[in-house]
Design a protein around this nucleic acid. Structure first.
Length: 323
DNA sequence: TCTCACAAGACGCGAGGAAA
DNA sequence: TTTCCTCGCGTCTTGTGAGA
């Protein structure tokens, strides 16, 4: 407990420069008095920490001094190299920085940990983009990323589904989902999501952005996805599916996959199962389920059966001369 | 398994000194 | 005057080992 705290103090001073005892104590969730004892221990152990008194004072490491001890365990250092985010980092304009950082980390690791990190680097690669789809062009990503890093307001020209709009937003964070970049930013004090490939123009403003004190990006994103899915699925359909049909349904969407797994966790070859699955609009569901026929047969609602039948008639009309 | 003693860690309070 | 570091003291909590 204490050893890890001592290491944290050292790392904090190394990365942030000068920090007051009050700030360090708050970060480490101990009293200021305890913090002073920890600093004493570090000094006694030979870490060159000195204190500046008075306004803007605090503890600081001697200029240029750094520890070669990274504090990483073998598995932690391997995990860092496994993140393999070189592609997204390049899109953010940070590709070279990632390469440099990995090089520095590698050089700082003890020799016996380097082999493990190199093995991970050679054996794992993360490709966040989906199959069969070109990645969205994101010419304004670097500007948006700069606004996020620097906490500056951003003027956007955005292609919303209604029309082209002009927006001044306060950036909060970036999200990469299935190869698509999104900006989370507040407008009128409300967090909103913008697809970065829909940004037609981005101008970095000199004004500082306002960030809600307790904003939690992962929590916002999870909640936003749940809200989106809840609004997306407007009803249910009951279907009869073969083993092949179940496989196809599981690939349709995460919401459908969840419903299928819950109702038919395992299915034997040759078996058919009756399932209740969430659907979007009748038009969307008829298109999706038609291509799964005859492995997936819609039993209800009648309106969906009718929509599929009409679609089939239209297809038949197209190819009538070949029947 | 329980009890007890001991040490280490942590905390709170307060007085004092240095620097901006 | 304000801010921040320094140090001492007493007290409480927690972990550990010895002994019944």
């Amino acid at each position: 407990m204490r050893a890890s705290r001592l290491l944290t103090i050292q790392m904090l001073l190394q990365t942030r420069g000068r920090m007051s005892a009050q700030a360090l104590a708050q970060l480490l969730e101990v009293s200021v008095r305890t913090l002073y004892r920890d600093v004493d221990q570090l000094t006694a152990a030979g870490v060159p920490i000195y204190a500046e008194q008075g306004r803007n004072g605090g503890f600081q490491l001697v200029e240029g001094w750094k520890t070669t001890l990274t504090g990483f365990t073998a598995s932690e250092s391997q995990a860092v190299f496994m993140s393999g985010l070189a592609g997204p980092a390049t899109e953010l304009g940070l590709g070279q920085q990632v390469v440099d950082a990995q090089l520095k980390l590698m050089s700082a690791l003890p020799v016996h940990q380097r082999d493990g990190a190199q093995r991970v680097q050679a054996r794992f690669h993360l490709d966040p983009a989906d199959w069969y789809r070109e990645a969205d062009p994101v010419p304004h990503l670097a500007t948006v990323a700069a606004a996020v890093w620097q906490d500056r307001q951003l003027n956007l020209r955005y292609d919303s589904w209604k029309a082209e709009v002009q927006r001044t937003v306060h950036p909060l964070g970036l999200v990469l989902k299935a190869g698509v970049w999104y900006l989370v930013a507040t407008r009128d004090a409300q967090p909103r999501t913008y697809r970065i490939s829909n940004i037609l123009g981005a101008e970095l403003l000199d004004k500082a952005s306002a960030r809600p004190k307790r904003f939690d990006l992962p929590a916002y994103w999870t909640e936003s996805i749940q809200r989106f899915e809840a609004a997306l699925y407007q009803g249910h359909a009951v279907v009869q599916a073969t083993t092949q049909g179940v496989k196809q349904l599981r690939q349709l969407s995460s919401a459908v996959a969840k419903a299928v797994v819950a109702q038919a966790p395992s299915i034997q070859a040759g078996e058919t199962v009756r399932l209740k699955i969430p659907i979007e609009t009748l038009e969307n569901a008829s298109y999706q389920l038609l291509r799964m026929a005859p492995d997936v047969q819609v039993l209800s609602p009648v309106a969906l059966r009718r929509a599929i039948a009409q679609r089939l008639k239209a297809i038949q009309a197209c190819y009538a001369d070949n029947l």
